[in-house]
Simulated assay, not measured.
Amino acid sequence: MKILVTGNAGFIGFHVARRLIERGDSVVGFDVVNDYYDPALKEARLAELDELSRRQGADYRFIRADLADRDAVDAAFREGGFDRVIHLAAQAGVRYSLENPQSYVQSNLVGFTNILEACRHHEVGHLVYASTSSVYGANRKMPFSEHDGADHPLQLYAATKRANELMAHSYSHLFGLPTTGLRFFTVYGPWGRPDMALFKFTRNILAGEPIEVFNHGNHTRDFTYVDDIVEGVIRAADQPAKPNDAWDAENPDPATSGAPWRIFNIGNSTPVKLGEYIEALEEALGKKAIRKLLPLQPGDVPDTYSDTSELAKATGYKPRTPVREGVRRFVDWYRGYYALGSA
């Protein structure tokens, strides 16, 4: 198939594009490569994809452009003839949304509108897009299920991703565009984002500097290894959404629709306390952290826990990588990438 992967210079997008190239798909990447975090890391990911495609003789090309630029998006689709679109580009980060909300409007709302319009007019067979566990917001019923409502986000980032889900539904309903939204749960692993906790903790522990441990390390996260996320993304993309013929408008199921639209959680279904996550990192690094204990930050939720039964039912797959194994793999990559050697 010919597949467009937006955000392929980003963490998850890079891993998805790499897997698609490895299995022989024709892949077009699209990314603005902004400076939200170190662009050198993004350029290194792109170089990896270039090298892989050369080795395999793969049909891969990269478009450096902004999804908020409608003309650039339209041009990519006119030339593309895409069977699938995997939309992973977004302005990420919970805390940054408190500082620069306009960036989230441009990337997550304007950019997504341009993707929806392009998919509609170019008759794309399936649009898969990244959402987030953050949409569950003020929900306290555990585990988080797609069948429960998600209408009380606690920060703008989550609100824009919930908006994406609703925007997609309108296009699925009006134009029959099959869409699948994927709610990711705390993704980590090699080539990760420097603004995320694992990257920051690793850097500071190795430098002998304190790490900031919010909520005194007592909140839990459903940490999900990136390879598990990728497997879920690709399996979902391979099976276009279909209408749920049993959907009842008088008693609506928030996870499905009478339109070809659906939502899946992708998480490890094994919540881990932040303190335990840090212990796994200390073990992998062979060095203890200096912990600076702080209160819960504004916009953060105390706990996340995914119910992935719908993903398993639809695709036959459930994430399974244990946190200690995933953290060890990240540390191995980190030492290699930064040429630090072993402990």
Rank of each mutant, 00 (worst) to 15 (best):
1 M>N: 07
1 M>Y: 03
3 I>D: 04
11 F>M: 12
12 I>N: 02
13 G>C: 05
13 G>E: 04
15 H>W: 07
16 V>W: 00
18 R>S: 12
19 R>G: 01
20 L>Y: 03
25 D>C: 14
26 S>I: 04
32 V>T: 10
33 V>R: 04
34 N>P: 09
36 Y>D: 13
41 L>K: 12
41 L>P: 05
41 L>M: 14
44 A>C: 01
44 A>T: 11
47 A>N: 11
49 L>E: 09
50 D>C: 08
52 L>G: 09
53 S>H: 07
55 R>W: 00
57 G>W: 08
57 G>K: 04
59 D>Q: 12
59 D>A: 13
62 F>D: 00
66 D>I: 06
67 L>D: 02
68 A>T: 02
69 D>T: 06
70 R>W: 02
71 D>T: 10
72 A>Q: 11
72 A>E: 06
73 V>L: 07
74 D>L: 12
76 A>D: 04
78 R>T: 09
81 G>L: 05
85 V>Y: 10
87 H>A: 09
89 A>V: 04
89 A>Y: 09
89 A>L: 10
89 A>R: 07
89 A>M: 10
90 A>D: 12
90 A>T: 11
93 G>Q: 06
94 V>M: 15
102 Q>I: 09
103 S>L: 14
103 S>D: 15
104 Y>R: 02
105 V>G: 01
105 V>S: 03
108 N>P: 03
111 G>R: 05
113 T>Q: 13
113 T>F: 09
114 N>L: 07
117 E>V: 13
119 C>H: 11
120 R>W: 11
124 V>D: 01
129 Y>T: 02
130 A>Q: 06
133 S>G: 13
135 V>T: 13
136 Y>N: 07
138 A>Y: 08
144 F>K: 01
148 D>R: 11
152 H>M: 12
157 Y>S: 04
157 Y>C: 10
158 A>P: 03
159 A>S: 13
159 A>E: 07
163 A>H: 12
163 A>V: 02
165 E>M: 12
170 S>A: 15
173 H>L: 15
182 L>S: 08
184 F>M: 11
186 T>P: 01
198 L>N: 09
199 F>M: 06
200 K>Y: 01
200 K>G: 12
201 F>C: 01
203 R>Y: 07
205 I>W: 04
205 I>G: 11
211 I>S: 03
220 T>G: 08
226 V>N: 02
229 I>K: 02
233 V>G: 08
234 I>R: 06
235 R>I: 00
235 R>G: 10
237 A>I: 04
237 A>E: 03
240 P>A: 03
241 A>Q: 05
244 N>A: 14
249 A>Q: 02
250 E>R: 08
252 P>I: 08
256 T>P: 10
258 G>T: 07
261 W>H: 13
261 W>D: 09
263 I>M: 14
266 I>H: 04
266 I>F: 05
272 V>I: 14
274 L>Y: 03
275 G>E: 13
275 G>Q: 10
276 E>P: 02
277 Y>N: 04
281 L>W: 02
289 A>I: 01
297 Q>L: 15
298 P>R: 11
299 G>H: 12
304 T>F: 00
305 Y>E: 05
306 S>R: 00
310 E>C: 00
310 E>K: 13
311 L>K: 08
312 A>I: 00
312 A>W: 11
313 K>T: 11
313 K>N: 12
313 K>D: 14
314 A>Q: 13
322 P>G: 04
322 P>V: 03
326 G>W: 02
327 V>L: 07
335 R>D: 05
339 A>H: 14
340 L>I: 05
342 S>F: 04
343 A>R: 13
